[in-house]
Amino acid sequence: MSPSTVSSSEAEKEAVCSCLLTFQSRAALTLSSLLIPLLAQELNLSYFQLGLVVMSYGLAMAASNFLFGRLSDLRGKRLPFIKLGFALAFPAFLLQLLMKGFGSMLLVRTAAGFCAGVAASPLIAHLSELPHYREKVWLFSGFTSLGWTVGYIGAGLVPDYWMAFLLSSVLFLLAFLLAFRLSETEVKRTAPSPRNLLKQNYPLYTCYLLRHVGAQAVWTIFPVYLLQLGASRGWIGGLHALNCGMQFVFMSLLSTRGETLNDKKLVRIGLLLSAFVFLFYSLATSYLHILPCQFVLAMAWSTLYVGSLLYLLRKNVEKATSAGLLESTINVAGVVGPFLGGVIAELWGMRASMLIACGLSLAATALSSKL
């Protein structure tokens, strides 16, 4: 169907299906990923081996996000890649049941990361071709965060690893079946040049990389930091879930103003709020001091992530490729950040990691003036 002829009811149906798809896929990803370090410990993997597993997963997903986003633009199609991604992720995540040691975990998690990245960028691009897409992107991102929240909670409730991996796989199967409810829109074929896209959008990608490397440096040691501040395991899980849950609330509320909000200002607000959050983290003397920070953090991520997506979708014809590069930036930061956070915490303590993250976010805020 042509975007110009899509009725409001058809657009709403497409948006609802897209939101449910991102919810299911993000819940599946989080449900598995949170338990991988614990399973690695039970399988007697070294910290170095666990680092290789996490790194290979992130790099595979980064490559997949970029590759299939670009292919989607080249072919002018979205649905084949959305369906393919969920179809591949179903068996890939089911294979996690066979992980018995370092070799099998490295192979399976690399495959899982690659398969999980196939559908992400084409799905965002599909949503952006609907009428009034800006407010729909807010809701879509909100359901992404809601999926993370359910994944966090689910990981704490399932009785064992194998049930979690099975549920992750089933969620991808359900997403694959739901994807058949989507309708293909007519999209002009483009031949995106990665070099040109990076050149055109380098301020945003660089801002995002700086902020997210700092954030990942913090998240690596954050549970241990909370333990030292006196938090129980229940509080640790609750504080993580609060952040993601409030993201859903903020994004849902802001969706009503999605057509009027300035995407550049949203990015700058998100970067500046991130810097304040990391600074206040470093000053906390009790886990209860972290509680109000999670509300600010949720607003920071909501404005930064959605503002970045809206900026790229507005500025670039190559919607899937530009969005894929943003997702790839997140994945690369997920590889670099934990290494940086571990080194800094080892040398100067965990509060130093948070101060470095604050500095990186401030540097990104300054660079955002070039947007």
Rank of each mutant, 00 (worst) to 15 (best):
T22D: 08
L20T: 04
F48T: 11
S18V: 09
A27C: 13
Q49E: 14
S32P: 03
L43A: 05
A27N: 06
L45P: 00
S25C: 05
A11I: 05
S33L: 11
F48M: 09
E10D: 13
L34M: 07
P3M: 14
T5V: 15
P3T: 15
A15T: 11
L29V: 11
L29P: 00
V16M: 11
L21Y: 02
E14G: 11
M1R: 13
V16T: 07
L39F: 08
L45I: 03
S4V: 14
A15E: 09
A15L: 04
Y47R: 07
N44Y: 11
E14Y: 08
C19H: 01
R26G: 02
E10W: 10
E14C: 06
Q24A: 12
F48L: 13
P3A: 15
E10K: 10
S8F: 12
A28G: 07
C17W: 06
S33Q: 04
F23N: 03
R26T: 11
A27D: 02
Y47E: 13
V16P: 01
S32L: 10
Y47K: 10
F23I: 06
N44H: 12
E10L: 13
M1I: 13
A28M: 05
Y47S: 12
S4Q: 15
P3G: 15
C19S: 11
L39R: 11
F23V: 07
A27W: 12
S18H: 06
L39D: 00
A40H: 02
L20Q: 05
L31N: 00
L39S: 03
S18K: 06
C17E: 03
S46L: 07
E10S: 13
Q24N: 10
S2K: 15
Y47G: 12
Q24S: 14
S2G: 12
S32R: 02
L29R: 02
S46F: 07
P37Y: 05
A11E: 02
V16D: 03
T22K: 02
T30C: 01
Q41E: 09
P37K: 04
Q49S: 06
C19G: 02
Q41V: 10
N44K: 08
L21D: 01
E14T: 09
Q24K: 01
L35M: 09
Y47N: 10
L43K: 07
S32A: 14
E14W: 06
S25R: 04
R26I: 11
T22V: 15
L39V: 10
L35Q: 04
E12H: 08
L43F: 08
C17P: 00
L31H: 01
V6M: 14
K13S: 11
F48W: 08
K13Y: 09
P3L: 15
S33W: 10
A28V: 05
F48G: 07
S9H: 08
K13H: 14
S4G: 04
Q41S: 10
L34R: 01
S33A: 05
L29T: 02
Y47L: 15
T22F: 12
E42L: 06
Q41Y: 06
E10Y: 09
S33D: 00
A40K: 01
T22Q: 08
V16G: 00
Q24H: 04
Y47Q: 09
S9G: 04
A40T: 02
S33I: 06
A15Q: 07
L21K: 01
